[in-house]
């Protein structure tokens, strides 16, 4: 079938990130040893959006920092691959985390500037994509919270990163704005052919944005289950009330519950 062929072609693409047997231990200020992650293996395929759901403090954000190379694992290997050579990440955080002293334009330009590239077309394109073309000269303080988030989305994609890392991207955004932003983000990922990895504790967000959801255990974090989201690549808000969306969300929720019950029955897990 045609669908299978597409699926096979996609599967044959090299994985953008492959983590094998990743463990992360660190010492707290008090001198205690904490195991944040243990034996995590996963791969993110080219042009795929992978979501990881898990409770707070399970090491999800650490996982992203390891991929970004700003933190280092204590065990295992990470293989980073990029079709066009240099591996760079885009980052979306819990807060918009813009530079208050830079205009919208200069905030979006930041990643290009740091990697030493100049690409005015990309800046213009991304700013237009998030609908901020009339606010290029504005400072973040002059924008609403939702607009600041949109600028941070443009910043994450402007340098054509190998993978966009999203760390609970819309925490603290009101529900109406959040759904709009999620739709905008999924459209950007698809139109730009981006590869992305999302960590969140919001099951609906994970299902709406991703092609695959991995479920992590409480600390020490490890991957315990995988749910494939059977929705078309192109997502739109109406899908939130579709059967497939409910099915995927219910499956993720059931797996999360199972993990918690196991966790309660056996404190060692």
């Amino acid at each position: 079938m045609a669908g299978d062929a597409v699926e096979r072609a996609r599967m044959s693409q090299p994985d953008v990130v492959t983590m094998t047997g990743i463990g992360k231990r660190y010492s707290t200020a008090k001198g205690d040893d904490v195991t944040a992650l243990t034996d995590v293996s996963l791969s993110v395929r080219d042009q795929e959006t992978l979501a990881i759901v898990g409770p707070s403090g399970c090491g999800k954000s650490t996982l992203l920092r390891l991929i970004a190379g700003v933190d280092h694992q204590t065990e295992g290997t990470i293989q980073r691959d990029s079709p066009d050579g240099g591996f760079v990440v885009g980052y979306i955080f819990q807060e918009s985390s813009l530079m208050p002293w830079r205009s919208v334009y200069d905030n979006v330009r930041l990643p290009l500037e740091v990697v030493g590239r100049s690409d005015p077309e990309a800046i213009d394109e991304l700013i237009r994509m998030v609908g901020m073309q009339d606010f290029e000269k504005a400072y973040p303080i002059e924008l609403s919270g939702g607009m600041q988030r949109r600028v941070s989305l443009a910043r994450a994609f402007v340098h054509k990163p190998s993978i966009v890392l999203m760390d609970e991207p819309f925490t603290g955004v009101d529900e109406f704005t959040k759904e709009g932003l999620q739709h905008e983000l999924s459209r950007m990922i698809r139109e730009l052919g981006a590869t992305a990895m999302l960590v969140t504790h919001d099951i609906e967000e994970a299902v709406f944005l991703s092609d695959r959801v991995l479920i992590m255990s409480p600390r020490p974090g490890r991957i315990l289950a995988e749910v494939v989201v059977e929705l078309p690549k192109e997502r739109d808000p109406s899908m939130r009330s579709s059967i497939k969306f409910f099915d995927a969300a219910r499956e993720v929720r059931e797996r999360v519950l199972e993990i918690h019950q196991v966790g309660q029955a056996d404190p060692a897990v």
Partner: peptide, 28 residues
């Protein structure tokens, strides 16, 4: 903002660059 530091580091920025682009304007 720790996020900004991580963002710059993930793009290969060194200590001087983080100081110049983040810390200095932040201190104004």
């Amino acid at each position: 903002d720790r996020n900004l530091v991580h963002l710059l580091q993930s793009l290969g920025a060194g200590r001087f660059s983080v100081f110049y682009k983040v810390r200095l304007p932040n201190s104004l």
